[in-house]
Amino acid sequence: MATTYADSAQAREWDRRYDAWGRDKRPQPHEFHDYEAAEQLRTQALADRAVRAIEERKSLRRRIGLAMVQMETICPPNGGAA
């Protein structure tokens, strides 16, 4: 019995809010979260992050190589292990 009363009270409150605002009583699509679109955005963000990580690794490898070349011009290797 309490559930029925709560449901009907909630329904009356819903109707009152929408009537007070002068809006249609049907649910509006913009009021709900689109879980599928959010999941697609999350998947795309993960893919973009993976691509960016690969590019950063390539860039880091290039920068380390350039730094090593600069170090060898300043301090050339002796030709053997120390």
Rank of each mutant, 00 (worst) to 15 (best):
Y35K: 08
I54W: 06
C75E: 11
E56L: 13
Q44N: 12
T4P: 00
D15M: 15
Y5S: 02
A45E: 10
R23A: 12
G79Y: 02
Q70M: 06
G79R: 00
V51H: 06
K25M: 07
P27W: 00
T73C: 06
D48I: 00
D15W: 15
C75W: 10
Q28V: 05
Q70V: 03
R23C: 14
T73I: 03
F32L: 04
E39A: 15
G79W: 03
Y35S: 13
A2L: 12
Y5P: 00
R52Q: 13
Q44V: 04
P29G: 03
Q44S: 10
Q70A: 09
E31L: 01
Q70D: 07
T4D: 14
E55M: 08
H30K: 10
I74C: 00
K58N: 09
D7T: 10
Y35I: 13
A37M: 14
P77S: 04
A37V: 05
A20G: 07
D34T: 03
E72D: 04
R26M: 07
A81F: 04
I64N: 07
M68T: 08
R61W: 03
G80W: 01
R23E: 09
G79P: 01
M71F: 11
W21F: 14
T73S: 09
E39N: 09
M71H: 10
L41R: 15
R42D: 08
W14D: 06
D34Q: 02
Y5W: 13
C75T: 10
A11Y: 15
G65D: 13
I54D: 09
P76R: 01
Q10F: 13
V69F: 05
R62S: 08
T3Y: 12
A82M: 05
M1C: 10
R49D: 11
W14C: 02
N78D: 11
F32D: 07
Q28P: 01
D24Y: 02
Y5R: 12
D34K: 02
A82S: 07
A82W: 07
A50W: 00
W21Y: 12
H30E: 11
A47F: 06
T73W: 06
A38H: 07
A82L: 12
A20W: 01
E72F: 05
H30A: 10
T73N: 10
Q70G: 00
D7G: 13
G65S: 12
G80D: 07
L66W: 03
Q28M: 10
C75I: 09
D24I: 06
R57L: 13
E56C: 07
S59K: 14
G79Q: 03
